[in-house]
Design a protein around this nucleic acid. Structure first.
Lengths: 172, 172
DNA sequence: CGTGAATTAATCGTGTGCGATTTAGTTTGA
DNA sequence: TCAAACTAAATCGCACACGATTAATTCACG
C-alpha cells in the first residue's frame, strides 16, 4: 500500500478542516463525506436487490452468505464470518433460517465438536443460476464499463483494508 | 449520465456470464462483486467510526442524522428521511433516542399538526467540533489523496442514482 | 492424568432497517 | 358541511448487526 504522499495529503486535509471550522459548517455537507456516499450506495444496492431476491426467498445478507458458500462449500461458522465480516451472534440465526429454508445444512464436526460445518444442500447449489441472473439484472441496469467497476472494487477494497488496519492500530 | 457504450458493455457482460455458467462458478468470487465491495467498505466505516463516536455517545446512523441537521436545521421527519434514505419507521425511534440524549428537540408544527420538526439543541449544535475531529481521524488514517476521494464519491453517487432509478423503473 | 486457559458457537439486549398497518390531522369535493 | 381521500408520523413484526456474556469442548502445562 505504501506511504506515498501521506504527509502532504493530511496536510491538505488539515488546511481544509481549519477553513471549515471557521466558516460555520458551510459547504461541509453530507454529500462530501465518503462514508455517506458508501452508506447511500449500500442502501441502493440493498433496495435494488430486494425485489429481485424475493423470487429466491432470501434477504440480502442471506444472499451474500450463499455466494460465499457457492464459492467455497463446507465452511465453519467462524470461517464464513471471517469472509463476511460477521460473527456468530449474527450468523447463527441467519444460518438457522437458511437451514429451515432447505438451502444449507449445519452439522457438528466429528473431529472437533465445537465447530459447526455449514454446507449447501442440493437445493442450495441449485441457486447459482438464480444468482447469476441477479448479477446480470444489476449490471445491465448500471451502464458502467466493466473496467470501471473493477477499478472501483479495487479502490473500495483498498479503503476497507486501510480502515480495518487503522482500527486495529487505534484500538491497541 | 448518458448511454455511451451501454450495448457493448452488456454484451461483454453476457459473454462473461455465459462462460461463467459453464465453468461451475469457478473464479466468480464474492470479491468481484461491486455490491460486496460496497458492503465491506460500509462495514469497515461502521466499525472504524464506532469507537470514535462512543466519545460522543452516538451510533453511526445517529451521527449521520446529526450531520444532516448540522447542514440544515429544523427539518421535518419526512424531509430528513428523504436526505438519509430512511422512513419514519426507522427515524422515529432513532430521533427519540437523540432527543433523550438532549441533542435534538421534536416539536409538532403549528401550521400542520401532522408534521414533526426536528431541531438541534444548543448541545446538538455544539457537536460540530467533535464531528470535524471524527472526519479528521478517519481521513488521516486513509492515506488517499483528496482528489481520489472526491472522484470516488462521485462514482458511488452515480451508481447509487442509477440503481435508484432502475429500481423505480423495474417496480412499475 | 487433571485443571485452568483457550476456542467455538450460541444466547441476550439494544439499535437499526424496512414492509405493512394504524392513528391523527388536513384537504377535497359532492 | 361533512365524509372520503390523502398525508405525516407512529407503531408493529421480523431480520440483521454487534458488544457482552455463556456453554460446551479442546488444549496445554504442570
Amino acid at each position: 500500500m505504501g506511504r506515498t504522499g501521506n504527509e502532504d495529503v493530511t496536510q491538505d486535509w488539515n488546511t481544509v478542516m481549519a477553513e471549515k471550522k471557521s466558516e460555520e459548517f458551510q459547504g461541509f455537507g453530507l454529500d462530501q463525506h465518503l462514508c455517506f456516499a458508501i452508506y447511500k450506495a449500500n442502501h441502493a444496492f440493498n433496495r435494488f436487490y430486494k425485489p429481485v431476491m424475493k423470487k429466491l426467498g432470501v434477504t440480502y445478507p442471506q444472499y451474500i452468505t450463499l455466494l460465499a458458500l457457492l464459492e467455497k462449500d463446507h465452511q465453519r461458522v467462524s470461517e464464513l464470518g471471517e469472509r463476511l465480516f460477521l460473527e456468530s451472534n449474527t450468523l447463527t440465526p441467519l444460518l438457522k433460517r437458511l437451514e429451515e429454508m432447505g438451502y444449507i445444512a449445519r452439522t457438528r464436526s466429528k473431529e472437533d465438536e465445537r465447530q459447526v460445518i455449514v454446507s449447501l444442500t442440493k437445493e442450495g447449489r441449485g441457486l447459482s443460476d438464480g444468482v447469476i441472473d441477479v448479477q446480470h439484472c444489476a449490471f445491465s441496469n448500471l451502464d458502467v464499463p466493466v473496467e470501471t467497476i473493477r477499478q472501483l472494487v479495487g479502490q473500495l477494497n483498498g479503503i476497507q483494508e486501510m480502515l480495518t488496519e487503522a482500527k486495529d492500530k487505534v484500538s491497541s
